[in-house]
Design a protein around this nucleic acid. Structure first.
Length: 256
DNA sequence: GTTGAGCGTT
C-alpha cells in the first residue's frame, strides 16, 4: 500500500497489458474493471490522463494475469458498447518504457535505452516524455473547433500568441484517480459533487487583452515626458495589488 | 459543458 498512482507500475513480470481505445472521456477504471474482470483475472487498470487538465485521454490499459484471459477479453470486449460508445480492446504494442511487447507481454528489454539506460536516471526519463509526448500532440480539441483557415497565412500570427498559456482553473475535476486496484476496491460510491467549483480567477484589474493596441499613432520616444510608467503595480506603494491569494494547494484526493 | 488519433503511471 505504498504505491497507488504514486509510484510506477506494481509488477509486470508476467502480466499482459491490453489497450482499450475509443472509450469515453468520462469512463473510469471503475467502470472498466467489472467489464474486464468478468473475462479474466485483472491485475490492474490504468488510464493515462493529461498532466495539465487531468482529463482522460480516451484510452485505458487493462493488465491481465494470463494471456488466454486477455485474448478472450479482447475478443469479447472488443467492440463492446461502454458508456454509450463502442470501445476497442487490443493487445498493447508498447510497454510503459517503450519496450517491445508481444501479445501484451514484454518479450524484449528497452530497445531504445539499450546500453544507455545506465547513465540515465529513472527520473530523467519522465522529463523527456513530457515534452515528447504530451506537448507534441495538440489534443484533438482545438483542431476542428477553431477554423484553421484563418492561419493559412504564415507563422506571422504564430509568434503573436506568446501569451501565457491559460491554465485551466480546475486541474482535477474531482474525478477519482485513474488507477484501480483490485484489492483496493471500496464500497464507497464515487462522489462527483462537493468539488467546490470555486471558479472565478478573473482578477479585478483586467489587463488589456489586446497586446497590440492601435496606438500606432503615438511614437515610442514620446514618453520622454513625465508619463507614468506602464507598470502601475510598482508605481504607487499605496495601491498594493492583492494578488497574493492563499496558495492553498491541498490535494484532497492525495491521501484518499 | 466541448474533442476522438492513439500506446501507460512518482
Amino acid at each position: 500500500m505504498s504505491h497507488f498512482g504514486r509510484s510506477g507500475p506494481p509488477d509486470i513480470r508476467d502480466t499482459y497489458s491490453l489497450l482499450v481505445l475509443n472509450i469515453t472521456f468520462r469512463t473510469s477504471a471503475d467502470d472498466l474493471f467489472p467489464l474486464f474482470d468478468k473475462y479474466g483475472k485483472v491485475v490492474d487498470i490504468f488510464i493515462p490522463r493529461d498532466r495539465r487538465t487531468g482529463d482522460s485521454r480516451g484510452f485505458a490499459f487493462v493488465r491481465y494475469k494470463y494471456a488466454d484471459e486477455a485474448q478472450k477479453a479482447v475478443d469479447k470486449l472488443d467492440g463492446r458498447n461502454v458508456d454509450g460508445r463502442d470501445i476497442m480492446v487490443q493487445f498493447a504494442k508498447y510497454g510503459p518504457n517503450a519496450e517491445k511487447i508481444h501479445k501484451g507481454r514484454i518479450i524484449e528489454k528497452n530497445p531504445k535505452t539499450r546500453g544507455r539506460s545506465r547513465s540515465r536516471s529513472p527520473y530523467s526519463r519522465y522529463r523527456d516524455d513530457y515534452r515528447d509526448r504530451d506537448y507534441r500532440r495538440s489534443r484533438s480539441r482545438s483542431r476542428d473547433r477553431y477554423g484553421r483557415g484563418r492561419y493559412r497565412g504564415r507563422e506571422r500570427d504564430s509568434y503573436h500568441r506568446s501569451r501565457s498559456r491559460s491554465l485551466s482553473p480546475d486541474y482535477y475535476r474531482g474525478r477519482g484517480r485513474s488507477r484501480y486496484k483490485v484489492e483496493r476496491r471500496r464500497s464507497r460510491s464515487r462522489s462527483y459533487d462537493s468539488a467546490s467549483p470555486q471558479r472565478g480567477p478573473s482578477p479585478r484589474r483586467s489587463s488589456s487583452p489586446r497586446m497590440t493596441p492601435p496606438s500606432r499613432g503615438h511614437s515610442p520616444d514620446r514618453r520622454k515626458h513625465d508619463e507614468r510608467s506602464p507598470t502601475p503595480a510598482s508605481d504607487s506603494p499605496r495601491a498594493r495589488p492583492v494578488d497574493s491569494r492563499s496558495p492553498s494547494l491541498h490535494n484532497s484526493d492525495a491521501d484518499d
